Amino acid sequence: MGNKEVVYPYIPNSVPEIKAEMLKAVGAKDEMELYEEIPENLKLKRALNLPEPILDEYSIKCHVENILAKK
């Protein structure tokens, strides 16, 4: 066998039906319920200074390639 490149597609799980199905699978009513078990003293109490999200696969690929090209 050759060294075949493995490609993992970017699959956003923001489609409401998919989110609902995933939450149902874990028995949660909403996303925030997943964080309820984290003790309050471990939760960050301020907003993070993050860049705008990259919402499509092509842009993510370009972004990562640009980062890797800098090394």
Rank of each mutant, 00 (worst) to 15 (best):
I18D: 09
V6F: 15
I18P: 01
E21F: 12
M32C: 14
E52R: 10
N66L: 00
P39T: 07
I11R: 09
V6T: 09
K24F: 06
H63W: 01
E40C: 07
E21S: 15
L55T: 09
P12S: 11
V7R: 14
D30W: 02
V15I: 05
E33R: 10
K29D: 15
P12V: 06
K19Y: 03
L50N: 08
V15G: 04
E57M: 00
L55E: 01
K71M: 02
R46D: 14
A47D: 09
K43S: 03
M22E: 09
K24T: 08
M1V: 13
E52H: 04
L23Q: 14
P39I: 07
E17C: 04
P39H: 01
A28K: 15
L23A: 13
N49K: 13
P9I: 01
E36Q: 13
Y10T: 02
K29V: 12
V6R: 15
I54L: 01
Y58A: 02
K61N: 02
R46H: 14
N49R: 11
E37V: 08
I60T: 01
M1G: 11
E17T: 12
P12F: 00
L68M: 08
N66C: 03
E37M: 08
E31V: 13
E21K: 15
M22G: 08
Y35H: 11
M22A: 15
K61A: 00
L50H: 04
P12N: 08
E33M: 15
L23V: 10
E17S: 12
P12M: 01
K70N: 07
K29N: 14
E37P: 11
E31N: 13
P39D: 09
M1Y: 05
K19R: 15
Y58M: 00
L55M: 09
E5D: 14
N13P: 03
L68C: 04
P9K: 10
V15N: 15
E52K: 14
Y58V: 02
E65H: 02
L48H: 05
L34A: 14
E5H: 09
P12E: 05
K45Y: 07
L50S: 03
P16N: 03
I67F: 01
L68I: 05
V26G: 07
H63F: 04
C62W: 00
E31C: 13
M1R: 13
L44H: 08
M32H: 14
A47K: 08
K4M: 12
P12L: 05
E40N: 05
M32E: 12
K45V: 09
M1E: 10
I11K: 14
D56K: 04
P39Q: 03
P12H: 02
A20E: 13
V15S: 11
E5C: 03
E31I: 13
K70L: 00
L48M: 10
L44C: 10
I11A: 03
D30T: 03
E33F: 05
Y10P: 00
K19T: 07
P9W: 02
G27N: 11
N41Q: 13
L42S: 11
L23F: 10
I11T: 12
K4L: 12
P9C: 00
V26M: 10
K70C: 01
G2E: 08
N41L: 06
P16M: 03
E33P: 06
Y35G: 05
N66F: 01
N49D: 15
P53T: 05
P39K: 06
